[in-house]
Nucleic acid binder design. Structure first.
Lengths: 214, 214
DNA sequence: CTGATTACTGTACCGCTGGTACGGTTTGCC
DNA sequence: GGCAAACCGTACCAGCGGTACAGTAATCAG
């Protein structure tokens, strides 16, 4: 009955696979419905696991939330790192590297089959009261990582390209996060990835204008 | 016991006052905790009303949501209209009018005593599964109004100011919404209004750069 | 092959709360 | 003083998060 998808043969990875199945299912459901609106029973049903099994892996819903945020930030980090590596391989110039990264990112969003499911960080931020301080700290940490990622590149760019207007690096870096989160919201409302893609490209144009590349 | 705050004497405005009290309380709570996580009982307690009284005014939680969105969009509209009127009084030039509007808006956000409570539109978008199609339509409608408001002004600007780069009006208009929503999210996470203000001003700078005002 | 450990299943249960319903009571108004 | 509108009080129930635990299947060490 429990249609196991037969991943992870051999070693003791069975546990990890189940855990991952729970996390993936929970993330999808929470992005659709929100954290509070997603019951544990909902997750159990879709993940084809029993309550006992669930509580074997997680002590409760809050610990699930914690694990979800950690997983999400790690995933996100992997994606960004990969895209930056690609971009860095295509140019030596710090400005062009960042511009290429943004183009690659926009392309990736455009190529998504379905509408962007949303960002767990945003979803949790709007229900932060239901989560522990620890989870909130994790989220803030994640945002700061994104800020740092872009900031480092902006600093390098500043050295080479005098900005057309005085540029505040943290604000310009935060603008990336702001653009993505705002774009995702628009995409959810318009039910299409296009707005998200457009906003990312607009942010890209902003950087080009600020650093006199146009 | 029921500490009525003794507003609205005389005429049959008692009902409207109660209704408004419920709505205001509900909005504050929902922005803090999220829609699903806000129980009717929570609202009853803070609004000093009983369950019976509540259901006299609203058929249920979903209808409350509907009323909240309507109220929110109306409020929002009033604020934007007022700021635009102020801006239009200060300049004849379409570009400068929009720039002044953005400055006024940024100032308003900066002057808020507490951290921006969040946007109901965003909050509901992330829990849209719990709402009727009607509410979702309302939200989309609201977003489209904002787009239109800015688009009309951008069109006028385009006539006078040739853009430095080909400008897509809807995308540039959506960028306002995206900036505000993204900024609000940042402000919630950083627990300060500054990021929101900074993002609005950065959007303002983007427009200045695009339309060659710098 | 065996036995121990891990990784679950299945079931039964509990306290609590969110949402609904509705009969009764107060208040305002002609 | 009578009639609506506005509001109170209470009762009800499904469903939630969480617990407990006995039984069973998979995995691995020796």
């Amino acid at each position: 009955m429990t249609t196991r998808t037969e991943e992870s043969r051999s070693t003791g990875t069975r546990s990890a696979a189940t855990r991952e199945r729970i996390l993936a299912t929970a993330e999808a459901l929470i992005l659709q419905r929100g954290f509070t609106a997603t019951s544990i029973d909902d997750i159990l049903e879709q993940a084809a696991i029993t309550k006992g099994g669930f509580f074997y892996h997680f002590n409760g819903k809050k610990e699930l939330a914690r694990a979800l945020v950690e997983r999400y930030l790690e995933q996100d980090n992997r994606i960004f790192t990969a895209l930056f590596q690609q971009a860095d391989a295509l140019s030596e110039d710090p400005l062009h590297q960042l511009l290429i990264f943004l183009k690659l990112f926009a392309d990736m969003m455009a190529d998504m089959a379905v509408t962007h499911p949303g960002c767990l960080v945003a979803s949790f931020t709007y229900e932060s009261q239901q989560l522990d301080d620890e989870v909130r700290a994790l989220i803030r940490q994640g945002i700061l990582v994104w800020r740092k990622l872009i900031s480092l590149r902006l600093e390098k760019i500043l050295v080479k390209y005098p900005p057309r207007q005085p540029a505040d690096v943290p604000t310009l870096a935060d603008m990336f996060t702001s653009t993505v989160e705002g774009g995702i919201l628009l995409s959810r409302i318009y039910n299409s990835n296009q707005p998200l893609v457009n906003q990312i490209l607009q942010y890209r144009m902003h950087l080009r204008l600020v650093f006199g590349d146009l």
